[in-house]
Amino acid sequence: MHAVPSTNETTTGEAPARKLRGDWTPINYDLRDTWFPVSHSRDLCARPIRRIIHAQPYYLWRENGLPIAAEFHPQRSKGEALHLSEFTGGSGFYPVVERYGYIWAWYGNPDAADPLQLPHIPFLPEDGNIPGYTQRTVRFDATSALSVENLIDLTHADFLHANTIGDGISESDVVEVEWTSETVTRTRTVAQKSVAPIMRWVGGVRAKYQDFRAVLHIHLRSNVCISYPRFRPGYDVPNLQPFLPVGKHRSRCDVTFNTTAAPAPFRYVMPRINYIIQPQDNSVVRPQNQRYFEADERLDMHSRFDKPGTRYRYQMEQLAERQAAGQFAYGSDAEPGRDISGLLGMND
């Protein structure tokens, strides 16, 4: 039995106009006016920590329990003339919100910051009250867009991570892609796939095969990837993987796997799976990164299994073009904060 291709595409976006495609150069994308989850809430205390979004410095700390995000270090910069940027409107302080166990900082025009544009993450408590074992930090040796592309890419998981996630052999395998001007959503529905090794050996799932439905919802500006895989027999493993663009060559991912509903020891082990998967991914994305610095005359070749990825590339290009033209407002089809419980399949 072999996987079945993604033949049933659902298209909620408008049909794109035909035009000559150039090469994909994700390293140069610097998308603005969005909320980035820059840190797990639990990592923030009175002592300032440093984060970087593209090339912009973010210093984060708490005052009276409330998060502060600034483009200067509160202690080191005393008495110095500060060079404040347009990202803080000259105030030195970024708009900041704490939600879902993360500190969200605004990147872009501070006047456009609106908490209503925060992504909706239905499987995380708004107050961030979630056990520490669900949260981990991993680093990817590639620009954030390549890291997201790696996540949306299906066949590499079957091949590169087969020993962890399982191979690509199944009775049927249907991939659907939906998109708006600000998001791409990939849904994969697999019937009778070999049970993922981690679920077999740690999760106690003794069946030989399992069905699963995995929804990945990507916010293009912020690289926030909201994933909801459901395994039957097995468990739901909802997770948030936000790829923070730390310059053109690296990305940071403060991950949350909400495995609180799964049995032990699976609930403790699963959030740590990235420590196995991430080196495997880094072994390929690291050398890949330098080959996307500049447009190549030879465009990438795609199989039909790459449709989610090619759609992601196209939507990113469209968004980058709009921003390059000075259009930073969210399109009428984009509601970053809309309830996505149904989209993720949580209500089924």
Partner: peptide, 27 residues
């Protein structure tokens, strides 16, 4: 040493009966 699919070095792959298999997606 460049897979035409996603530009990953083919040297990261392995030799199989049909040729050289890329380590990323198995082309």
């Amino acid at each position: 040493d460049r897979c035409p699919h996603r530009r990953v070095p083919l040297a990261l792959g392995r030799v199989v009966a049909a040729g050289l298999q890329c380590g990323y997606h198995g082309w």
